[in-house]
């Protein structure tokens, strides 16, 4: 049996809307992943540091208060600075199409818009991590 996927689920920014983050975290757990949940109101610095310490393969960030451009970009920068640029960053929340394109250009691996169903998220992460592990095994 392959080892479980380790993923950090973080609620970035000051708003407290954690329904989405928690439903996704519970869904990923039920899909057999080890989910590290950071709780609310996380700064990009806290998210990046937790991702490094926990040596996760994926960071999932939920943002609903419109600060996603600042927050996601900063997390990507900080991970790179820490030498952990290999960690995949995905996200979800109230993010417009324009911003999704912009963030994916900056290096966010995938953004899930409002109304995305859990199995879609699970499938995407499983496939992406499999690919990443296969890549790492080659090296």
């Amino acid at each position: 049996m392959s080892r479980p996927i380790r993923i950090l689920v973080a609620k970035a920014g000051l708003d407290g809307h954690d329904r989405g983050a928690k439903v996704v975290a519970a869904g990923l757990r039920d899909a057999g992943m080890e989910v590290i949940y950071t709780g609310l109101h996380q700064t990009p610095e806290q998210i990046a540091e937790a991702a490094v310490q926990e040596d996760v393969e994926v960071v999932g960030i939920s943002s609903l208060a419109g600060a996603h451009m600042t927050l996601f970009t900063r997390v990507l920068e900080l991970l790179k600075e820490a030498g952990a640029g290999h960690i995949m960053v995905v996200g979800g929340g109230i993010i417009s199409e324009d911003d999704i394109v912009g963030l994916e250009k900056r290096g966010v691996a995938k953004l899930f818009g409002p109304g995305t169903e859990l199995p879609v998220i699970v499938d995407w992460i499983v496939k992406a991590v499999d690919a990443q592990r296969a890549e790492a095994a080659k090296e």
Binding site: P4, R29, G32, E34, E45, A50
Partner: peptide, 28 residues
């Protein structure tokens, strides 16, 4: 979870070290 093999690790939530403190390392 014995059924799914997954786990929800939430202990970090309550551990609020200052973000730049290199003297602490937390692992779930």
């Amino acid at each position: 979870s014995p059924f799914t093999g997954g786990a929800l690790l939430g202990d970090r939530v309550r551990i609020t070290t200052s973000e730049s403190d290199e003297g602490v390392f937390i692992r779930s």
